[in-house]
Design a protein around this nucleic acid. Structure first.
Length: 595
RNA sequence: GCGCCCUUAGCUCAGCCGGAUAGAGCAACCGCCUUCUAAGCGGUAGGUCGGUGGUUCGAGUCCACCAGGGCGCGCCA
């Protein structure tokens, strides 16, 4: 039987509805849902079936709910099915149906909640893709965590997920990086050239002035001595040094980024190089294919209304007919110097992802790329002839707060918060969990004080504490009953009939909602739902724990009542499993104890 | 000027592709905490869901317009 009781009951409801009203079409039936009851007084679950069927059937929803309820009641898992409100049918599971899910959880272990909604669907999730021109900062961090958790929850729901990082190692910013690294190289070999002089002598200006390039300059000196400069330690002709300097700078920056990702617990399957794509001719081929479809032309764009740049001048450009696929304006593929725009290269990159075998592409981007969404969706539609959808998850800005005040960030002043700084200050688990306590498309405040607080205000702490409490109870039980008696396998055999307190049942109801939540979060591409679920689940567990303070019969370890103890331990072990299963999706450590 | 995102309790935010009386934490107020499982616990109060129309049996959720905040707007990525 499916782990997902809601799916089981939904099948039952749909079957009963079809028997009642054979004329209903699949379009009607797809709207039928079985959801957790909001109020325990309503039972365990509710279905909207009668309301969605009322109109096509030409019947009164309440009357339909009445006859549907009569048919549903026969199900062996149900104690009752009753019409309610405007046409809901409230479903109440019989006591054993609820309790029987505990051994299901214990036997499935961390695999509890694994689903099949994504079975057979190959998804490519691309995230981070920070330019290798400097260390990762807090802005990249949100995308990294969201992408990683999204990939994990989709994998848990059964999708075949590939995670990917697109390395922008071509283009003007890389050129600027090479010059900036060369500047640090000249410093390393003892050149007396000043920043101002260097800036003036550089085609792109001296852009990246952060100290993080000093080790690159030093490394260049160690490998090449002074051979990359003129005899008097001044700027040599770029043809003598540009390639080696660029390559070393890129590889060292990527190494640093990979180290940052590792510290954050992010591990992507594929790293794709923009330069490799370019050199393989893939970009030319992709453009040629669009050209063959008649989607490329030479044209002149109108200046944006109301905000025409001062230096605007009409200019013929190579354009992609994005407007044929829903974009506002056709988009340029070539710069005035004849090289490709970033967009052109990105077309080839997405075509490559499709060619490697993806049914769905998901890109996780920062909000500053929002204006890029419609053209990218347009071109993916064009390239794949509409077969492969591109979905974009936009992550809005993160404001870092300390002591109720915003932490000011300025890249120019070098005071921006690097990912490394953030990890050093609050730790990986807090960074990841906190980033997921907001919808990705809403701006968020990252409160440094809250992220390290050891109180209920801090969701990371609260959830990890719940898990640690579970583990602590099981450890204590192992000492008195023997380790073999408290394994999940042993507890799966426990007689659970003693679990009947409303708070115990509330906890169980929360546990059995996990498979459904995984499914919903994966389909909606909303990993933050997992974090909120865990917070609520932890709350339910802590509430039961606290209730045991006033009512000692609710404590997990009952001296002299081994059967009752074992039943409660089964519940505790199942709770620990679900928390662990969820934390695994988020990439957060399930703490064994709090110190 | 145009496009996209956001606006829910004093504050920070949920609200599960339209469903029942809109939820949580913090702050506020009341009570509890010599002992049991207290890096506290229980409870109360607090919202015309930015505004105005519309679609619907039903709208915080969908549509239109307006207001406020954010991100963008031909060669950056």
């Amino acid at each position: 039987m499916s782990q997902n009781l809601f799916a089981v009951m939904r099948d039952h409801v749909v079957e009963a509805l079809r028997a009642l009203l054979p004329q209903l079409t699949p379009e009607h039936l797809i709207r039928v849902e079985v959801t957790p009851a909001r109020d325990p007084a309503h039972g365990d679950m509710a279905t909207n079936a009668a309301m969605v069927a009322a109109k096509p059937a030409g019947q009164n929803p309440r009357a339909l709910a009445q006859s549907l309820a009569e048919r549903l009641t026969a199900h062996p898992l149900l104690q009752s099915a009753e019409p309610a409100g405007p046409g809901f049918v409230n479903l109440r599971l019989n006591a054993s149906a609820l309790l029987d899910q505990i051994p299901v959880i214990l036997r499935a272990a961390e695999g509890y909640g694994d689903g099949t909604v994504g079975a057979g669907v190959r998804v490519n999730v691309e995230y981070v893709s920070a330019n290798p021109t400097g260390p990762m900062h807090i802005g990249h961090c949100r995308g990294a965590v969201v992408g990683d958790a999204l990939a994990a929850v989709m994998a848990k729901a059964g999708y075949e997920v590939t995670t990917e990082y697109y390395v922008n190692d071509a283009g003007g910013q890389v050129q600027a990086l090479a010059w900036a690294a060369y500047w640090r190289y000249l410093q390393a070999i003892g050149s007396t050239i000043t920043a101002e002089e260097f800036d003036a002598a550089t085609p792109t200006g001296l852009q990246y002035r952060g100290e993080y390039l000093i080790p690159v300059g030093r490394s260049l000196y160690e490998h090449f001595g002074t051979t990359l400069a003129t005899a008097d330690l001044a700027i040599a002709d770029p043809s003598l040094w540009f390639g080696p300097v660029r390559d070393r700078a890129l590889s060292m920056m990527m190494a640093e980024i990979r180290e940052d990702l590792a510290l954050l617990g992010v591990r992507q399957d594929v790293f794709s190089s923009e330069r490799a794509l370019l050199e393989s001719g893939a970009v030319d081929r992709a453009i040629a294919e669009l050209d063959a479809k008649g989607l490329i032309y030479e044209g002149v764009l109108e200046p944006p209304k109301g905000k025409a740049p001062d230096d605007w001048e009409p200019r013929p450009q190579t354009l992609f007919r994005a407007t044929e696929f829903g974009d506002d304006v056709d988009r340029p593929l070539r710069k005035s110097d004849g090289s490709n725009t970033y967009f052109a290269n990105d077309i080839a990159y997405h075509a490559d992802k499709i060619a490697r075998g993806s049914d769905v592409l998901i890109d996780v981007w920062g909000a500053d790329h929002g204006g890029y969404v419609s053209r990218m969706k347009a071109v993916v539609k064009a390239v794949s002839d509409g077969r492969v959808p591109l979905e974009i998850v936009l992550c809005q800005i993160v404001h870092v707060m300390r002591g109720g005040q915003p932490v000011r960030m300025s890249k120019r002043a070098g005071t921006f918060v690097t990912l490394r700084d953030l990890l050093d200050e609050v730790g990986r688990d807090a960074v990841r969990f906190t980033m997921l306590m907001r919808k990705s498309d809403a701006q968020m405040e990252f409160d440094l004080d809250q992220a390290v607080a050891q109180t209920r205000e801090n969701p990371v702490f609260y959830v990890q504490y719940a898990h640690a409490r579970c583990r602590s109870v099981l450890r204590a039980a192992g000492e008195s009953l023997g380790a073999a008696a408290v394994t999940p396998e042993a507890l799966a055999e426990a007689d659970l009939t003693g679990l009947d307190d409303p708070q115990e049942l509330a906890l169980i109801r929360r546990l059995i909602a996990w498979p459904r939540l995984v499914e919903g979060a994966a389909m909606a591409r909303e990993p933050h739902r997992v974090a909120f679920f865990l917070y609520d689940l932890a709350g339910e567990f802590h509430m039961l724990w606290n209730k045991g303070r006033d009512d000692s019969t609710l404590r997990f370890l009952q001296a002299g009542d081994e059967a009752g103890t074992r039943a409660r331990l089964a519940l505790v072990a199942a709770t620990a499993i679900v928390i662990r299963s969820g934390l695994y999706v988020l990439g957060v450590t399930p703490a064994e104890e709090m110190r």
